[in-house]
Design a binder for these strands. Structure first.
Length: 120
DNA sequence: GTCGAAGCCCGTCACAGCGC
DNA sequence: GCGCTGTGACGGGCTTCGAC
């Protein structure tokens, strides 16, 4: 029986890939959704060449930071959503395997009964 | 009613990995 | 190298629930 790699279609968009950081057990869930659209309210900066004064540079730095925070906020939400989905998926798989296991044990008991020699 | 614990969600930071 | 993205870790706020 091949348990690993026996993916069902419910897992198609959850693809555990490499391991992140040092935890060892948590897979990552790589889904590269197209992220071309900027969130509302995000204004593209002027080209760096057009910035001169320290104030302009500071504003640019602030703008970049806020953009980064906004993107990271969305990324974190998406990451958590995928992780929850992945956990749900694993839980339902556990349920299926438990049922399967139970059936196999019952079958084994039946076969044992059939094959065991009668004592009296 | 309120207090503390537990659980959940969120925002942020730090870091690893990838593509250029 | 540098910028970008994904994700673990952390801390804070909110909600729920049981004990008192």
């Amino acid at each position: 029986m091949a348990v690993t790699g026996d993916e069902t279609d419910e897992e198609t968009d959850l693809a555990p890939s490499h391991m992140a950081a040092a935890t060892g057990d948590m897979p990552t869930y790589q889904i590269r959704a197209p992220t071309t659209a900027l969130p509302q309210g995000v204004v593209m900066a002027a080209s760096p060449g057009s910035l001169h004064s320290p104030q302009q540079l500071a504003e640019e730095a602030t703008r970049k930071r806020e953009l980064r925070l906004m993107k990271n906020r969305e990324a974190a939400k998406e990451c958590r959503r995928r992780k929850k989905e992945y956990v749900k998926c694993l839980e339902s798989r556990v349920a299926v395997l438990e049922v399967q296991n139970k059936k196999l044990i019952e079958e084994l008991e039946t076969l044992k009964d059939i094959c065991s020699p009668k004592t009296d």
